[in-house]
């Protein structure tokens, strides 16, 4: 059975059996893409509520979803302030990671000596867990904000550095020859050839760095233990834990997760907008 047999099509004789099947699959997938995650979430929340009610679990062990929602509404002002701080640290760290990572990649690309001198240290900085560096940072850096930024930056800059470096070195060798034949200067080669070639790689690194800068910010907050005004979401989670206010822990956690999803979505859209006209990753193919 095909759609074509059942109802008239907008364009006569446009769809054969294959096309119709493909169109139907596309439509189903389009709906499922949104509907399935929503259904799964509703089921999970319902299951959660049922487990809590059926086993009579006390709220200081596991609060039900209703209680978490109430906490989210009641503590909204405080959580929003906390989210604001964490968000700012994350964004600034990401910005610094982009500037630092891409800048270093360009410097390394321009000077082999610089790369040989510093790249191993960039790797060491990356592979040493930030949780173990953070306490040291807060000993030597007075400003907690600056310390948190530094922590988040250390985690986030490396993917930008390594993927941009890879991109700058992945230029089509014929195009490289062409630029040499046409007498391109070092700057022209960078501007017109290497940077556009590296863009898709850079954007890949950026997406990873977005998530990592949030992780870095959260870890830094936990280590810094900022109190009073200027406390971020991670600190609120920790504080609520001490008070056995588990509902607020969940509420703050959901905001951290939402922030992560938002960053990922925003960077994906940004990446798509930059690449949609020419890059293979943004192309749709038939069949």
């Amino acid at each position: 059975m095909t759609i074509a047999e059942n109802r008239p099509l907008p364009v006569a004789e446009a769809l054969d059996e294959d096309e119709a099947r493909r169109a139907r699959a596309r439509r189903v997938e389009g709906i499922a893409k949104w509907a399935l995650p929503v259904v799964m979430m509703v089921l999970a929340i319902a299951g959660w509520a049922w487990v809590v009610a059926a086993n009579d679990i006390p709220h200081y062990i596991l609060p039900g979803p209703g209680r978490v929602w109430t906490s989210l509404v009641e503590d909204w002002g405080m959580l929003l302030d906390a989210a604001y701080l964490t968000g700012w640290i994350t964004l600034l760290a990401l910005l610094l990671a982009v500037v630092g990572g891409a800048g270093l990649a360009i410097l390394f690309n321009q000077s082999k000596m610089l790369e040989l001198s510093f790249y191993p240290y960039a790797v060491i900085l990356q592979v040493t867990p930030v949780v173990s560096i953070a306490p040291l940072i807060f000993i030597y850096v007075d400003s907690k904000i600056a310390g948190m930024l530094l922590c988040a930056w250390i985690v986030a800059f490396f993917p930008v550095l390594s993927s941009t470096t890879l991109g700058l070195n992945s230029v089509d060798h014929n195009l490289r020859d062409l630029f040499r034949i046409y007498g391109a200067s070092r700057w022209q080669k960078l501007r017109y050839l290497q940077l556009p070639s590296a863009l898709p790689y850079f954007l890949g690194g950026l997406k990873i760095a977005g998530g990592l800068s949030l992780i870095g910010a959260v870890v830094a907050e936990l280590v810094a233990g900022t109190g009073g005004i200027g406390s971020g979401l991670a600190f609120r989670i920790q504080e609520a834990g001490y008070r056995l206010n588990i509902a607020r822990m969940f509420a703050a956690l959901s905001l951290v997760a939402a922030m992560g999803v938002f960053i990922f979505a925003a960077l994906s859209i940004f990446s798509h907008l930059l690449l949609r006209k020419w890059h293979e990753s943004a192309l749709k193919r038939e069949g």
Binding site: L175, D177, L178, I181, L199
Partner: peptide
Amino acid sequence: VVFQEPTLMPWA
């Protein structure tokens, strides 16, 4: 110069 591949800049 013309190479075996068209060697065009895909972003341009």
